[in-house]
Design a protein around this nucleic acid. Structure first.
Lengths: 249, 249
DNA sequence: ACAAAAGTGTTCTCCATACACCCATGG
DNA sequence: CCATGGGTGTATGGAGAACACTTTTGT
């Protein structure tokens, strides 16, 4: 489906949506020791934006977010945290929607509901990079990972949304032990440490980090890995959800 | 103004409001060593509810909350934290609105916008109990403090909202040092400790508590207090905002 | 004198940090 | 052998909890 037809259907569907509210998703992934965020680029523009969407009239807020996530990543059962509701009165962007529309030969009506103000609920998601199949929507010509330290300019207030998401992620890292959701099913200690270092933006001492992680009693050691390097093969670990659920609170 | 006229005007004003979104305010106060919450009781019913409201079309989300807070408490410049957005699809309560209306001789139209679903942004506020003048709105015959441990049944999902607010308050207590907002300008160490104990729901050791608080370097000691008891008068302390702003982050 | 408030000292545990060092193993 | 991974030991410092004890001061 092309942009024009997609836009027509999208706007028509407005009457089936819960009014006044949108969602923004900061989807974090981890690859090559870099923390990445999934961004869409609007067709025929250089406008980058976070994935997001709207809530259907008979749909739970979180389900609406999961629907968006599944479409952009191909994944169900994603780790998700709500982190903030953005409610500034300036959150209406008719100009951007107009430019995007006109860049795709669509005449934009400024009375269109999409041009109005939305209060947006921000969620961040943690996904296993290798399982994600980034999938653009009809309005985007790309859906790609971007290093969080080198994001392009973002439309709307999405830069602020990303910053707040990262801040929340950092704060919750130890408390919710959510980092494992960014790794594959099995991973090495070195990989886990690299992930923590990347998220927190600082070096950690290997021995202490390993003691701490193993001390949590939530890791299960599997067999060895690799036969590539000229050295000892690292152990593989797996996050044990059962052990995690026993302890906290 | 009576309920009927108020209701008519309120409903008419719907077109000036941002659609689909409401706000809920958990206003905490501290008195007689009890943590209290401000509740409204709908006129001629036994329905208790949190103060809350809607956002005007050209109004910031947080400003909308402050507008409600000022009307219910008489206070500006209230300490405020957003803690959660409630987005369940079942958040529409036509029956309750109908009963409230009919209890006040208003014929309720189920197509009325107020009967629809709202996504509600939850805020908690911390106020100085003695400065608050609880003020009911046209739909309420009382606006009163209630001990958080003995709340009456609440309408809508407001019980869940209160619980989540208290949880957030507890988590943020040390991090944001927000408890001082629940006390008068000046207070004694004993009062401060009682406040912490009430919020956290556990006893604290006096000596350690005082060392910790004084060690934060954010308290300013004033002159003495009292001449009531047959004993030494306690010091009065004041929260020093300047010292607080220097340290954190 | 008494009672409440305030302060000091000490001990323990737990945790994070830091660093030195050893062992294992695959080529 | 040596590079990498994995592990132990140990010292330090800080926070917090527990408790004993002293000092201050208003009536």
């Amino acid at each position: 489906m092309d942009f024009q037809e997609g836009f027509r259907l999208f706007i028509e569907n407005g009457k089936n949506l819960h009014p006044g509210v949108s969602t923004d998703c900061v989807i974090f992934g981890f690859h090559d020791n870099l923390l990445k965020v999934l961004l869409l680029k609007f067709k025929n523009t250089s406008f980058y934006a976070l994935p997001g969407g709207f809530i259907e009239k008979d749909e739970n807020l979180e389900d609406a977010v999961r629907r968006v996530l599944e479409r952009r990543t191909g994944l169900k059962d994603i780790y998700l945290e709500q982190f903030y509701a953005f409610g500034d009165k300036k959150r209406a962007y008719p100009d951007i929607h107009r430019i995007v529309s006109e860049s795709n030969s669509v005449v934009f009506n400024p009375d269109n509901w999409i041009a109005g103000r939305f209060i947006s609920i921000g969620y961040y998601a943690l996904v296993d990079f290798v399982h994600v199949k980034p999938t653009p929507d009809v309005f985007s010509d790309s859906c790609d990972w971007h290093d969080i330290r080198e994001l392009p300019d973002l439309v709307f207030d999405h830069r602020e949304v990303v910053d707040k998401a990262l801040e929340s992620l950092r704060q919750m890292l130890d408390y919710k032990l959510s980092a494992f959701n960014l790794l594959p099913e099995s991973f090495t200690m070195i990989e886990l440490q690299a992930l923590y270092e990347t998220i927190l933006g600082k070096k950690l001492v290997r021995t202490n980090f390993q003691r701490k992680m193993l001390g949590l009693g939530i890791l299960e050691r599997l067999e060895k890995k690799w036969s590539g390097g000229a050295h000892k093969a690292p152990y593989l670990y797996k996050f044990n959800k059962n052990k995690y659920l026993k302890e906290p609170d």
